[in-house]
Design a protein around this nucleic acid. Structure first.
Length: 679
DNA sequence: GATGACATAAACAAAC
DNA sequence: AGTTTGTTTATGTCAT
C-alpha cells in the first residue's frame, strides 16, 4: 500500500490539499495515523466518507437556502412592510443537525475546520465529483440570484437618482432602498464568505473550476448566514432611518453585524467583488463583515498572492489585482495532476524546511553544548575549519551528535539516518553519489557522512564557513556535472565552489590551487579545448575507477544509489548525470538545485507512477536509514510523464526552484562578479 | 609499515 | 607585466 508521507505533525492547513489529493488518489490513511500499513475497514471508511461528504454538501446547500430565504424576504418586504421570520427549508430535517450547527456559527466553520473534516476522512472520487457537481449547481443557482439582485440594484439606483433630483423621498421608498442596500451588503457578505469557502476548498484541492466555468469569486454562494442573524439584520435595516449612503458614496455605514467598518481601503474588498454586482458601482463599498473573514483569507494576505504575482510554486504569473489572481488561480491551478503534484511538493518542501529547522536548532544546541562542555578536548579544538569540524557540524543534528563527535566513538552501529520527525525523503544511501567523502573521524567510527546531510545542510554550507566533507575531486565533478553541458571552465568551477560553499569564499589561493591540482592530477577530469578556451569534463568511468571499493563493494548500496537518485541533492547530481548516461530514468533536472525538490520530484514521479500499490520490497536491501518514502520509492520509473508539460521539462515548480538565486547555474553565475569578494 | 587517497603548498610554464 | 590556467613535484595526514 502506498505509504503516506504526510505527517500530521507537520501538516499545515495550507497544505492539506496535498493530503486531500493524496487521499484522493491513493485512498491512503488519514494523516492523523502514521501506521506504515494501515488497515481499515473499507466499508466503514466509505460510510464515514459518505457522511462527511454529505455534511459538506449540506453545508453548501443550506447556505444557499438561506440566501434564497433572504431573497424571498426581500421580495416579501417590498410588498409588505414588516418582517417574517425566516424559515428553514426542512427538506432534509434529519440531516440538518450538523449543518445547523455549522450554520449557527458561520465563523466556526473556518477553512481550517473544513480541512479538518477533509483530513479526517477520505472522499472517494465519486463523492467528490458529486460534491463538486452540487457546488456547480449551486453556483448556477447563485448566478440566478445574482441576476435578480442586479435588477434590484438597478432599480435601487434609479430610485436613488430620483431621490437626488426630487429631494425628499417617501419613507417607504427610503425603506426599500435601505433594505436593498442591506441586501447588497448581505450579498457581498455572502460573496466573500463564499469566496472564502471556495478558496479553502480549492486550496485543499477540493475544487476544480471547469474550463468553461467562470472564476470562483464570480459566483457568490450564500454561506454562513443564519436565519436569526438575517432576521436581526433585517430588523436593524428596517428600523433604521436612512442610511447615509447615496448614489455616489461608496462608504456605506450599514453594518450588518453591528461592527462598523471604516476602512479607507475599499479596494480591498472591491477586488473580490462580483463584477456583475459592481457594474454600477454600487457594490464598491467595503464589506461590512470583512472582519469575520479569517486573516489568511484576506485578499492581501493570500498565501498564494503577493506583490501582484501568483505565488503558486513555479508560477509567478503577474496578476494585476486579486480578482485576476483568483481567476488565474482557478484556471491555471485547478485540481489536476500537476497541481496535486505541486501541492505535494510544496508540502514536502515545508516539511523539509521544518525538519531542517529542527535539525539546525539541534545542531546549534549540540555545538554549543560541545564547545561549552568539551572545549578542552584535544581533537575538537585544533582545526576549526578542518574536516573534523565540518563533519561534526554536518552531522551533529541529524544524527546522534555525540556519535558524530570525534571523542565519543562509542557506538559503531549508530543510526545513520537523519532524525525524521516526519518521513524523511532524503536517503543516506545517496552518500556515494557525490563521490568520495573525505574520511576523517566519522568514518573511523563507522558513521558515514551522507550527502543527504550535506544536502540538508546546503544552506548551512552556503552560509557558514564550514568546510564541506567532500574531496576536491568530488566537488569538482559535482560542479561539472551540474552544468547543462557537463563541462565547465576553471573559473566556472571556482564560481561553483564559492557559490555553494561559504568556506570557499576565503582562502581562495589555497583551494583554487587545490582545484587546479586536482583537475590536473586526476585522470577523471578531462580537459577539452573549446572555442572559448578550455573546459573541463568528467570521465565518469575514470572517476569510478578511482574508488572502486567504495561502491562496487556493496551491491546493495549501488542499488540504493539508483533507487534513491530521486532524492538526490545538488551534490549528487553527478550521479544523476552518470545515471542519465546509463539510461537510467531520472528527472535529473528536477533533482538538481534543491534537495528538497529533488525529493519531491520523486514524490511526483511516484505519484505519476501510481506507486501507491508499491510495496516495501526493497526494504530488505535498503540501508538502515531509509525513510519510509525512500523505502517505497519505486525502482521502476516510468520515463514518460503523464503530463505533457512534464514531458518537456521538469515541473515548473522544480524549475523555479532551480532558478533560485542560490542555485543559479554557473552559466548564469559566471557573469556575476563572484570572485571579487573572495580574493 | 606499506599503500592509497587526499590536502596543501609551491615551482614552473604557457596562455591570456 | 600581471594574471590566469595548467602541470608537476613535494610533503603531510589519515585510513585501510
Amino acid at each position: 500500500m502506498f505509504q503516506c508521507v504526510f505527517s500530521s505533525s507537520v501538516l499545515q492547513p495550507h497544505s492539506t490539499s496535498c493530503l486531500f489529493k493524496h487521499l484522493f488518489y491513493h485512498s491512503a490513511t488519514p494523516a492523523s495515523q502514521k501506521q506504515p500499513e494501515p488497515i481499515y475497514s473499507k466499508k466503514t471508511e466509505i460510510q464515514r466518507q459518505t457522511v462527511r461528504a454529505h455534511s459538506v454538501k449540506l453545508f453548501i446547500f443550506s447556505a444557499l437556502q438561506v440566501a434564497r430565504q433572504l431573497l424571498l424576504q426581500q421580495q416579501q418586504q417590498q410588498q409588505v412592510s414588516g418582517l417574517k421570520s425566516p424559515k428553514r427549508n426542512d427538506k432534509q430535517p434529519a440531516l440538518q443537525v450538523p449543518v445547523s450547527v455549522a450554520m449557527m456559527t458561520p465563523q466556526v466553520i473556518t477553512p481550517q475546520q473544513m480541512q479538518q473534516i477533509l483530513q479526517q476522512q477520505v472522499l472517494s472520487p465519486q463523492q467528490l465529483q458529486v460534491l463538486l457537481q452540487q457546488q456547480q449547481a449551486l453556483m448556477l443557482q447563485q448566478q440566478q440570484l445574482q441576476e435578480f439582485y442586479k435588477k434590484q440594484q438597478e432599480q435601487l439606483q434609479l430610485q436613488l437618482l430620483q431621490q437626488q433630483h426630487a429631494g425628499k423621498q417617501p419613507k417607504e421608498q427610503q425603506q426599500v432602498a435601505t433594505q436593498q442596500l442591506a441586501f447588497q451588503q448581505q450579498l457581498l457578505q455572502m460573496q466573500q464568505l463564499q469566496q472564502q469557502h471556495l478558496l479553502s476548498l480549492q486550496r485543499q484541492g477540493l475544487l476544480t473550476i471547469q474550463p468553461g466555468q467562470p472564476a470562483l469569486p464570480l459566483q457568490p454562494l450564500a454561506q454562513g448566514m443564519i436565519p436569526t442573524e438575517l432576521q436581526q439584520l433585517w430588523k436593524e435595516v428596517t428600523s433604521a432611518h436612512s442610511a447615509e449612503e447615496t448614489t455616489g458614496s461608496n462608504h456605506s455605514s450599514l453594518d450588518l453585524t453591528t461592527t462598523c467598518v471604516s476602512s479607507s481601503a475599499p479596494s480591498k474588498t472591491s477586488l473580490i467583488m462580483n463584477p456583475h454586482a459592481s457594474t454600477n458601482g454600487q457594490l464598491s463599498v467595503h464589506t461590512p463583515k470583512r472582519e469575520s473573514l479569517s486573516h489568511e483569507e484576506h485578499p492581501h494576505s493570500h498565501p498564494l498572492y503577493g506583490h501582484g504575482v501568483c505565488k503558486w510554486p513555479g508560477c509567478e504569473a503577474v496578476c494585476e489585482d486579486f480578482q485576476s489572481f483568483l481567476k488565474h488561480l482557478n484556471s491555471e491551478h485547478a485540481l489536476d495532476d500537476r497541481s496535486t503534484a505541486q501541492c505535494r511538493v510544496q508540502m514536502q518542501v515545508v516539511q523539509q524546511l521544518e525538519l531542517q529547522l529542527a535539525k539546525d536548532k539541534e545542531r546549534l544546541q549540540a555545538m554549543m553544548t560541545h564547545l561549552h562542555v568539551k572545549s578542552t578536548e584535544p581533537k575538537a579544538a585544533p582545526q576549526p575549519l578542518n574536516l573534523v569540524s565540518s563533519v561534526t557540524l554536518s552531522k551533529s543534528a541529524s544524527e546522534a551528535s555525540p556519535q558524530s563527535l570525534p571523542h565519543t566513538p562509542t557506538t559503531p552501529t549508530a543510526p545513520i539516518t537523519p532524525v525524521t520527525q516526519g518521513p524523511s525523503v532524503i536517503t543516506t544511501t545517496s552518500m556515494h553519489t557525490v563521490g568520495p567523502i573525505r574520511r576523517r573521524y566519522s568514518d573511523k567510527y563507522n558513521v558515514p557522512i551522507s550527502s543527504a546531510d550535506i544536502a540538508q545542510n546546503q544552506e548551512f554550507y552556503k552560509n557558514a564557513e564550514v568546510r564541506p566533507p567532500f574531496t576536491y575531486a568530488s566537488l569538482i565533478r559535482q560542479a561539472i556535472l551540474e552544468s547543462p553541458e557537463k563541462q565547465l571552465t576553471l573559473n566556472e568551477i571556482y564560481n561553483w565552489f564559492t557559490r555553494m560553499f561559504a568556506y570557499f569564499r576565503r582562502n581562495a589561493a589555497t583551494w583554487k590551487n587545490a582545484v587546479r591540482h586536482n583537475l590536473s592530477l586526476h585522470k577523471c577530469f578531462v580537459r577539452v579545448e573549446n572555442v572559448k578556451g578550455a573546459v573541463w569534463t568528467v570521465d565518469e568511468v575514470e572517476f569510478q575507477k578511482r574508488r572502486p571499493q567504495k561502491i562496487s563493494g556493496n551491491p546493495s548500496l549501488i542499488k540504493n544509489m539508483q533507487t534513491s537518485h530521486a532524492y538526490c541533492t545538488p551534490l549528487n547530481a553527478a550521479l544523476q548525470a552518470s545515471m542519465a548516461e546509463n539510461s537510467i530514468p531520472l528527472y535529473t533536472t528536477a533533482s538538481m538545485g534543491n534537495p528538497t525538490l529533488g525529493n519531491l520530484a520523486s514524490a511526483i514521479r511516484e505519484e505519476l507512477n501510481g506507486a501507491m500499490e508499491h510495496t516495501n520490497s526493497n526494504e530488505s536491501d535498503s540501508s538502515p536509514g531509509r525513510s519510509p518514502l525512500q523505502a517505497v520509492h519505486p525502482v521502476h520509473v516510468k520515463e514518460e510523464p503523464l503530463d505533457p508539460e512534464e514531458a518537456e521539462g521538469p515541473l515548473s515548480l522544480v524549475t523555479t526552484a532551480n532558478h533560485s538565486p542560490d542555485f543559479d547555474h554557473d552559466r548564469d553565475y559566471e557573469d556575476e562578479p563572484v570572485n571579487e569578494d573572495m580574493e
